[in-house]
Simulated assay, not measured.
Amino acid sequence: MQKTLLVCLLTLILAGIALPACAPAPMLEPLTASPTRDSTLRPYPTSTHSATPLPTDYVTPTSSPTVTPTMTPVYYAVLENDDFYSVGWRFNVSPQQIMTANPSVNPRAMGVGTILLIPITPGPDPSATPLVELTPTATPFFTDLQAPDCYPDPQGGLWCFVLITNTTEKPVENLSGVISLQHGDETLHVSAIMPLNLLPDGKALPLIAYIQPPLPEEYTVNARVDFLLPVMPGDQRYLPATITEQTQELNADGRQATVRGWVSLPAGQPTARYVWVNATAFDAEGRIVAVRRWDSPGLLSGGNELPFTLYLYSLGGPIERVDLLVEAPALAEAPDKD
């Protein structure tokens, strides 16, 4: 009897387990696609703050103006035989600048002791950032130059001269150069100019430069020619003026020279709009010790002549000789009026 009950109970348990497994799977409803909606994307909110308006009484700040350096007042007492040109050479300013700075001084009637205002412009602030320097294109002429002859002046600057001899077999004009002062890794370049525009074939003239103070205790100086223009064949701009009756006088120590003479223009030549006579003084070693230029007070017509007098003061040793060169360009003719 017990065996029969045990069999029945086991049968019921197995039936309970098997029936769910044999039951049919439930039917799933088919999925239907949701309709597409037209919508506009809305920006996602960020933490960026909106600008805060300025107060109504706010004043926009303005930049401070750049301070422009003014001229350094330098005064000079006129010496015997001084003129605006000699004083200009001494301080590296033009005679016109001296005349403008001293409107009450008559350049032809100023006496010894006259006080002149010298308009010297201060150099750049040494702490300022230097500008980019353009390197000029080298010319094929005058590449073998001697070292410049340089002399310090009482103001702490440096006068430098380098003699240029024209070996190109043709005249050149507007010749300029560069004098370079080197101190350690630093180099200062200064423009150098000639006292005349024209340098005839076979003639020599100095390039002149002035280096503003202060100067380093030790330095080296060199020079180069950076520009010139050839005078074309048949160019009639420069007239054949000549120097006649030239005389030269030296004082006792040889440091001052007085040069006199006449500039003549042959008859039949056009009128010269100006006459320049340049004097270059040399010592016994051939070093340039002084340069001076005489400017004519007016025109010079063909068949006439002008007297000139030049005073030279040596920056170095005694003067041994003085070389002269004259320039007289033709006066341009006025165009014909119809």
Rank of each mutant, 00 (worst) to 15 (best):
T167Q: 06
G177P: 02
P195L: 05
V132K: 12
V162E: 03
L188S: 09
F142N: 00
A192E: 00
G177N: 01
I193F: 14
L145P: 03
D149Q: 05
A204I: 14
Q146P: 04
G156Y: 07
A138E: 01
N174P: 06
T168I: 15
I211N: 01
G202E: 08
H189V: 13
E173Q: 06
V162D: 00
E169Y: 15
I193Q: 05
L163I: 13
S127G: 12
V162M: 07
P216T: 09
T121D: 07
I193T: 14
P122I: 10
L228F: 15
M232E: 14
D144S: 13
D185A: 14
T187V: 10
F142R: 00
S180V: 09
L229G: 08
A192F: 08
P171A: 10
G156S: 05
N222E: 12
G123N: 00
T139E: 02
P195S: 06
A128C: 08
A138L: 08
L215P: 04
P213M: 06
A128Y: 08
L181D: 00
L158D: 03
G202F: 13
G156K: 04
H189M: 10
E218N: 11
G202C: 15
C160E: 05
P213T: 06
A147T: 15
C160P: 07
L196W: 03
L229K: 15
I208T: 12
P216F: 04
N222K: 12
S176K: 09
A128M: 05
G156F: 08
P130V: 08
F142W: 12
P152H: 04
P200Q: 03
P213N: 05
P230Q: 06
F227H: 10
L196E: 00
T129S: 05
L229E: 13
Q212H: 12
A138S: 07
L163W: 11
G157D: 03
P216E: 03
E133Y: 14
S191P: 07
C160D: 05
F227V: 08
E169M: 15
F141E: 05
C160L: 10
E133R: 11
T220D: 10
E169C: 13
D226E: 10
D226R: 09
